[in-house]
Design a protein around this nucleic acid. Structure first.
Lengths: 236, 236
DNA sequence: TAGTGGTCTAGACCACAAG
DNA sequence: TTGTGGTCTAGACCACTAC
């Protein structure tokens, strides 16, 4: 394990164990360097990680402070962690509606950067959070990269399977969001009414080597999905 | 200007000028270091910036490649740049509906971490993108931090005024998103119908020193707001 | 195995915050 | 002015990719 990663984890644990609150001050840089016995550069990198994760903020000339959101029950939309880490304390379950190889349509092909007609695994499922409907998901995996899927895998975390069993290295992703009115079919799956609001996020996932391997379209149940994003140095 | 920042900008310009496309390879690290005459650490930091901005991706043992989204007309939701940079090629205009100091309600006070009753500037405006209604915004600025606002400032970019004229250093922000049905009043302002879908983002903005100074509630027009997020190493 | 990016270090020097 | 975080460097060594 990387030193700066491990150091960051330990500092995070320290914050949790000491139940530090928003605004509480951590030991100064020099002190942290001494305690964790790492170089200044490494400690800086660890702190930068924690900063991006929204756990601390650093003020030059002043100190390092704990950062916390003051709301609970929100789903962390862009966490550095995965879906799982992200939802500690919540139960996620899935019902699989479809699982079959199909030929890529033009739209799927375009998003995955492949030729129309190439075989992709089509997965359709409903995901539940704490027993309530969270979202309807339709995903398309390139079969040349994900050669095999079965119902058991798809009922659990697909990405965990890809990383552990298939040893795929998941890199970056492009997400496209918009809000609209639910179609009759989506509404039926989400146990809502046609025309109700729905947040749709389309995502193209890439491996670390830049190859797209999954295009997914997720429509969230508007009453059960509240998101939080901890951003840094930006203002919309 | 910081060296790593400037180097990053130059590389970005290089990519634009050479019209490089998704997947095109940049010179290798060593070569970049030589060309820009910086240390390896600095170049690494520049590249990391560009990576977070979604402009490149790096593959160990292979090279550095250009990353691009393949969709246009989407608003970059969490750019490292501000709203303005973000919307190059688009025209943003505002109509001010209200601008007055008021006493903070419990909800406002809670979000800003202040006492209820403290004076905040209340700004309500409609924002247009390329002549179309983009969103309805209601913002509350702590008067102790933002002592003065007038109509002229509020019609332009408030944040630009805060940074340049007031010399405030804007740090991080917490954003809370949810989708719902528009109230009659919101619908009227957005020229939509009551019950239509709306994406609401509440944001608490902090200075670099961690003090919250602005709580804003923005409801987006669902037909005119499509967002893109380029994420790194995460999977929802 | 060669090519290429990533981590880590020690230390000099810089820049901002708060009293 | 003092305390404290940020930038930058040169260089050693590590780890992944692709052939």
């Amino acid at each position: 394990m990387l030193k700066y990663q491990q150091t960051a984890d330990e500092i995070e644990r320290y914050i949790e164990q000491h139940e530090l609150k928003q605004g509480d001050k951590l030991p100064i840089l020099e002190e942290l360097i001494r305690q964790f016995a790492v170089s200044k550069t490494t400690m800086t990198k660890s702190l930068e990680l924690l900063e991006r994760k929204g756990i601390i903020f650093q003020v030059r000339g002043s100190g390092i402070f704990v950062r916390k959101t003051n709301r609970t029950g929100y789903i962390r939309l862009f966490s550095t962690q995965g879906f799982k880490q992200n939802l500690v304390g919540h139960t996620i379950e899935s019902t699989v509606l479809s699982l079959e190889p199909i030929a890529a349509t033009d739209n799927i092909a375009k998003n995955l950067g492949i030729e129309a007609g190439e075989t992709v695994y089509y997965v359709k499922r409903i995901r539940y959070i704490d027993g309530k409907i969270l979202c309807l998901e339709e995903s398309y995996y390139r079969q040349s990269i994900v050669p095999y899927l079965n119902r058991e895998i798809v009922e659990q975390s697909i990405f965990e399977y890809l990383e552990t069993a298939l040893q795929l290295n998941i890199g970056f992703s492009d997400m496209y969001m918009h809000v609209g009115k639910l179609s009759a079919e989506s509404a039926r799956h989400l146990d809502l009414t046609e025309g109700d609001p729905g947040l749709t996020i389309e995502t193209v996932f890439h491996l670390t080597n830049g190859r797209p391997f999954d295009y997914s379209v997720i429509t969230y149940h508007y009453e059960h999905s509240h998101f939080v994003v901890q951003a840094n140095g930006l203002y919309l």
